[in-house]
């Protein structure tokens, strides 16, 4: 039950973004999310081009299109990586309401430029 609801929400959130190419604004918003402590703070654990003093708790995010070609998979990782790997230290950004679906999409837009 709960699962279908999440999946449904997921599909609705992802669909519009898949259809259109990311705008520079979306990419810039995603960069801010990826580097700001109170937002996604992805750089705390992942290095990516342009990140200042990135951590190495998680894998380096480069050639991201090749790494995670499927946007839905990418969304699911950021939404709740703990669903895929219960032991992970990566926060469940969507499930725990740290980032909105829109913000998750922006961070994906940004990282797909890396």
């Amino acid at each position: 039950m709960k699962h279908t609801a999440i999946l449904l929400g997921l599909a609705v959130a992802v669909l519009p973004a898949v259809a259109l190419a990311a705008t520079p604004q979306q990419v810039a918003a995603g960069e801010k999310i990826a580097t700001t402590k109170s937002l996604g703070n992805c750089a705390a654990c992942h290095s990516f081009a342009g990140a200042v003093e990135p951590g190495n708790v998680g894998p380096a995010l480069k050639d991201v299109k090749a790494m995670i070609p499927d946007r839905k998979t990418f969304y699911a990782i950021v939404f709740d990586e703990q669903a895929r790997n219960p032991q992970t230290v990566m926060p469940a950004f969507g499930k725990n309401l740290i980032l909105t679906p829109r913000q998750i999409n922006e961070v994906i837009d940004f990282l797909y430029t890396k």
């Binding site: 750089a43 705390a44 003093e53 190495n56 708790v57 230290v89």
Partner: peptide
């Protein structure tokens, strides 16, 4: 789990 790794600039 993340001991010895870096969280931003800080080693855990």
């Amino acid at each position: 789990q993340a001991a010895g790794k870096r969280l931003r600039g800080q080693y855990l």
